[in-house]
Design a protein around this nucleic acid. Sequence first.
DNA 1: GCTTCCTGTGAGAGCGCTCTCGCCCGTATC
DNA 2: GATACGGGCGAGAGCGCTCTCACAGGAAGC
Lengths: 335, 335
Amino acid sequence: MSRSKPTIDDVARVAGVSRATASRVINNAPGASGPLRARVREAVAELGYRPNEAARALASGRPRVVDVIAVSCNLPGGWLGSNPYYSRVLAGMMPLLEGTGAQLRVHALSHETAAETLDEIAAGVTLGAVLSDITPPLAARFHRLCRRVVSLVPTAATVPAMVADNIGGAYTAVTQLHRLGRRRIAAIHGPAISTCAADRRIGHLRAVQRLGLAEISADGAFTREGGYHALQRLLELHPDLDAVFVACDLMAAGVVQALTAGGRRVPEDVSVIGFDDSVAAVCANPPLTTMRLPVEEMAAAAVRLLLHGDVPPGHRELFPAELVLRHSTGRLTAA
Amino acid sequence: MSRSKPTIDDVARVAGVSRATASRVINNAPGASGPLRARVREAVAELGYRPNEAARALASGRPRVVDVIAVSCNLPGGWLGSNPYYSRVLAGMMPLLEGTGAQLRVHALSHETAAETLDEIAAGVTLGAVLSDITPPLAARFHRLCRRVVSLVPTAATVPAMVADNIGGAYTAVTQLHRLGRRRIAAIHGPAISTCAADRRIGHLRAVQRLGLAEISADGAFTREGGYHALQRLLELHPDLDAVFVACDLMAAGVVQALTAGGRRVPEDVSVIGFDDSVAAVCANPPLTTMRLPVEEMAAAAVRLLLHGDVPPGHRELFPAELVLRHSTGRLTAA
DNA sequence: GCTTCCTGTGAGAGCGCTCTCGCCCGTATC
DNA sequence: GATACGGGCGAGAGCGCTCTCACAGGAAGC
């Protein structure tokens, strides 16, 4: 009689079956057949019944939530706000979740509160967690508490991960600059705390050694300002540089601005290549040649793994970075 | 004995109290005192007890989830992936939620599936929903089903909203161009389906009429490419334009690129002003003067309202857009 | 010394669902 | 015709928690 939401018992009563049968029909489970199925469905439609997720979770113990966790390795807060990376992660996960009825819970944690909140998530019911940004120690700790985790950043070896080939990407980028005839190639790296940044640094170093180039580099904190100032410092020490490999697009946008401000033309005087293929790359002027990471695909693969079942510890898939040619490196044929 | 998670009964047993008292202590409810509180807390710590959220939600009927809903008004999927707006929304909400134990659920819906999923959310338990992007009809429908909603975009009048002053912002932007001495001011608008775009169009029109300027405009779909091509069309028809008001930064970045490609200097020949103060504004070269929307503040205000209690229908707060001066309009003193 | 009124505590009834178990009945088997 | 089997269905026991209510025991008032 009350205006409160119909429960499965109401459905069962209206359909003239037991609650168990109603449940079977609602969950598409076997063991109910033909006419009863139809009657139950009819009752559901008539009452506008929607299962109560909390009760389901409690009774079944089977969670229907996927957690996305970001512990900003960088600027507190600022990083999340200014970086479209997370949007790409979410966009990659959403379509897979749509059919399953699983929901997406987002946690943006600061370093101070991270450990406590991670424990809480691990203790709770979750289909699994996707770590979109985290430090190796925190990731390892979380993995110890909750086996159903996939990281999107290179991290502790035990933690299953869908990672981009940052090393290979950086190597490719530097090689590309070399192919264009550039020989005074500088690099602007990200903060050491980020494992992505560390990998890109490794890739750059390998390429430099392989190609027999001088190692010229500066650090830039993954921000536009960081890139701008790093390039200014670099330009003072090495006024003859003719190319810059920048560890992220945001910094690269700053680099292009600094080059323009310093009277250098891009790409005629200096070639610039970024990393990530983010909005920053597209919005820079000239638009940036960059290494595209298949973030959506990685996120989707992570969700697929979690949805599918157990996540083997140490499982690791490498996603190649792809060179996206735009104007900041000039024409490829000029090589 | 089992390795399974401790329940509140375990805590009660270890502490030597009843389940009710344990619950009181855990929830900081009154009615338990002094030594018992200490004993319970001790037991909690000893067992590593964490309350089961599902059971809590079921027993109390009090939801601890805030939903963020985006029904992309624009490109299916592409919008979410490339727009840092959502990251800003999430960043604004996160700090408020951290203390409350409430969690954030994210839904990125396509137009096709939106209605069904919205019904589901409305029927479920939620502290409330924040609509970060939606069409008025869908918003109105959702509001009818679930009173606890706050929209971040201007929408149906009944739906409570924390909205940016898009009309005023656009008006300010055009006025600013006028103050710089520009008289052939063009506008590039967003898609009509977006209420934000519609409001910015209104603001532009008002300013143009007020200032006695010619109305020159084109449409650009809120994408960089859209901005690029819109400007090319505009330039063909009005080669003498000396300023462009662009309804979003992403398009504005494209505009700057098109101007550069067309041999115009920014800001010497043409001033450009964007909207949103997104990464795109900062990464463009030259960096864009733009209208900053306090997205984080709006999102935070929305959460505060939901957390606080009932949301009065029709409640509306207007957040002013703030002019952020960068290089794309030249020096203000040159006015 | 009796009633009255607190305040602190515990017992126990659900919240809405899932899932195991056993019953019933129809069919196959001897 | 008796026994065995199996599939469809319902009864009912939880899942882990919250919250109402009854009760015990001490302080206060007459």
